[in-house]
Design a protein around this nucleic acid. Structure first.
Length: 351
DNA sequence: AACGATGTCAACCGCAGTGTG
DNA sequence: TCACACTGCGGTTGACATCGT
């Protein structure tokens, strides 16, 4: 037996909203608010709509101060930085962009931003991969991972290979890239990860050294989304670097933090992952090495990003500024660091 | 001008989380 | 503690617009 439907589907109108419906909904909510009950709202107004549909219409279209289209470069930058850092948490990203809805940002990312970054790259990647065997491709396991994680990895790797087109020459001895800076979300994730380790399973804390691929596997099977995410990214980084970038990582290696590991003493592989992020920040801030000619145009949209400011401090400052002054309407958005912190604490606690 | 391909975006769907009795 | 109602979120769909041939 399934869950009861939220409304009588047979007696509910679907599809585009008429201006009359919009006017009714807007007028009522401006007068009386939602009354804390979206489900009952359409009956009160006399709309043949599902309560969820009313909510969506209000949040994404009718509420005051909504901006549509015309994303600025700064907004692009924020979206990209946050997407790379936290993935498709559109509501969190939207909370940092006053007047933007999660739906808008999601659409914008899926239809434009992502293509700008990944679109033409696919062809060149395909060309490169054509040199390797199908078995190698299949064994990467990439197709089993979430699209979001794949895209984020591709962004990492793409930007990395732009800066180091002959990366494979490093082979077993990649150049030292530590220390690098972490953005606040990454720092939070690493701190939280330690909390996860400490709180989720006592067995995991007993013998954390050496870190093993089994732990990555353990995380993959975990119900904790943060652990799953970390597992995905770990596997992706290892497989991705091996298969696409021509470097080999010993089987015994893992990206899992060891119990006594600190932010100051991560593994080489972990350092590389963080270094990727640092490189992205450098590229976004236009301080990195000049990409190859002909590839530049792919990133024209980002070359002047206001990440020109030191992106890390920018990121932190911007976060604070937006938190303090955000006029974004939302009863659901996350407005400040504390709430971000809480969000990650929730993740860490496996809620 | 016609038609298919592609892009855009509003809206829907289903699931997970939360509140409440 | 449990069941149910409701909310919020992210992924997906489909209608419409635009572009290319």
């Amino acid at each position: 037996m399934g869950r009861a439907p939220c409304c009588d589907k047979t007696n509910v109108k679907k599809g585009p909203w008429s201006s009359e419906e919009d006017a009714k909904l807007k007028e009522y909510i401006e007068k009386y608010g939602t009354g804390g009950n979206w489900i009952a709202l359409p009956q009160k107004i006399g709309l043949k709509r599902c309560g969820k549909s009313c909510r969506l219409r209000w949040l994404n279209y009718l509420r005051p101060n909504i901006k549509h289209g015309g994303f600025s470069e700064e907004e692009d930058n924020i979206i990209c930085s946050l997407y790379i850092s936290i993935g498709s948490r559109w509501s969190i990203i939207a909370a940092q962009l006053p007047g933007r809805t999660d739906n808008d940002i999601k659409n914008y990312w899926n239809t434009r931003l992502k293509k700008k970054l990944l679109g033409r790259r696919k062809q060149s990647q395909a060309n490169r991969l054509s040199g390797s065997t199908q078995d190698q491709k299949d064994s990467s396991g990439i197709e089993t991972l979430s699209n979001s994680a794949i895209e984020r990895l591709q962004l990492h790797m793409q930007l990395h290979s732009l800066e180091n087109p002959n990366f494979s020459q490093y082979d077993h001895n990649p150049p030292p890239m530590w220390p690098c800076k972490l953005n606040p979300i990454q720092e939070k994730m690493m701190q939280t990860l330690q909390l996860v380790n400490e709180s989720s399973n006592p067995l995991m804390m007993q013998n954390f050294s050496p870190a093993t691929p089994q732990k990555v596997e353990y995380y993959a099977q975990s119900s904790n989304p943060l652990q799953q995410e970390f597992s995905s990214m770990s596997s992706m980084m290892i497989n991705g670097m091996e298969t696409s970038m021509g470097i080999n990582i010993p089987e015994s290696s893992s990206l899992v933090l060891e119990s006594d590991a600190t932010i100051q003493q991560p593994s080489m592989e972990l350092q590389q992952c963080w270094a990727f992020q640092a490189e992205i920040d450098e590229l976004l801030s236009n301080k990195g090495a000049t990409p190859l000619e002909g590839q530049m145009s792919e990133f024209d949209c980002f070359k002047d990003m206001h990440g020109a400011k030191n992106s890390i401090t920018w990121w932190a400052n911007e976060f604070e500024a937006n938190s303090a002054s955000s006029n974004s309407w939302d009863s659901t958005g996350i407005h400040d660091h504390k709430q971000i912190d809480m969000k990650y604490q929730e993740l860490a606690q496996g809620h």
